Amino acid sequence: MARTADPVKREELLKAVVAYLEQHGIGDMSLAPMAQALGTSKRMLLYYFGDRAELLTQALDASRPQLGEMFRDVATPERFTAAARTMWRELTRGGERRNVRLLLQVLSLAVTDPETYGESARTAVDVMIGPIAAALSTIGYADEDACARATLVVSGLRGLCQDALVTKDRARVDAAAELLIAAAVAH
């Protein structure tokens, strides 16, 4: 009789996988060294996550910011601006800062290896755009315009995150983020 996977153990292992990937990157991700570093076996990683691609997908899902929560009660441009500023702070100074590095790696790898990383990268973009576009629709923008503005916010802030990681010029990048957020709700 097959054993049922322990959901608590699986969740703990997934958190450890995310932390490992944040520290070591995903470009040369190999299950054997990861398992050894996590104090488990490659067999157990496969048992809990299926395969390397599924492990990566689940790690990305687990590391994604909860934008639905940040943008849930947005009904005015002012509330949108406040939510977007909160998101920016979380991405650059808060608990999501480490996850940004992981996301940027996946997006970059998707360009050169779309078979392995393309679906994860598209999903990462889509799940960020969705809640922001919904908030912009609630404010009164037509769906197509709301989606374009959400793309501006997601892609623009992501690019600014990369700029900040590379240049360490926080003041310039923060000022650019303010401009971008204001542009998203400008008429």
Rank of each mutant, 00 (worst) to 15 (best):
L165V: 05
G130K: 13
P77I: 05
I181P: 08
S120N: 04
G156I: 04
G68K: 04
A134H: 11
Y141A: 02
A83H: 06
E96K: 00
L104I: 02
A121P: 00
R149Q: 14
D113A: 09
T76S: 15
E144L: 03
E90C: 10
R89G: 03
R101N: 12
M87P: 02
D174C: 05
C161I: 07
R64M: 07
V111W: 10
R79W: 08
I181N: 10
S108P: 04
L60A: 04
T81K: 15
L56Y: 07
A133Q: 10
T86N: 04
A135P: 13
V154G: 01
A150P: 02
V106W: 06
Q105G: 14
W88L: 10
Y117A: 07
A135R: 15
L56K: 05
R97S: 09
A171T: 04
E96G: 02
T116N: 08
Q58A: 15
V106N: 07
R97K: 12
D73T: 13
P131V: 13
L180G: 03
S120F: 00
L179Q: 14
R64G: 02
R85Q: 05
E69V: 05
A84D: 05
E178A: 12
A82S: 11
L103F: 11
Q66Y: 10
I139E: 10
T86A: 10
L165C: 05
E115L: 09
G118P: 10
S120G: 06
A62W: 00
S155Q: 08
R170K: 00
L60D: 00
S108E: 15
E69T: 03
T92F: 02
P65Y: 08
T151A: 11
G140C: 03
R79N: 10
T167W: 06
I129R: 12
A59T: 08
L165E: 14
A176L: 12
V154K: 01
A175K: 00
D174F: 01
S63W: 03
L107V: 06
C161D: 11
A134L: 06
R72N: 09
D61H: 14
F71Y: 10
Y117V: 06
A142P: 08
T112H: 04
D73M: 11
R89E: 01
L157A: 08
D61P: 09
A133N: 07
T138A: 09
A84Q: 08
L107W: 12
G118Q: 13
V74E: 15
Y141V: 00
G130Y: 14
E69M: 02
D145P: 03
I129L: 13
L104W: 03
G95E: 08
L160K: 00
L107Q: 11
G94E: 02
A134N: 09
R122S: 07
R85K: 06
S63L: 04
W88I: 07
L136S: 12
Y141S: 02
L180D: 08
D174V: 02
A83G: 09
L107I: 06
E69I: 01
E96C: 09
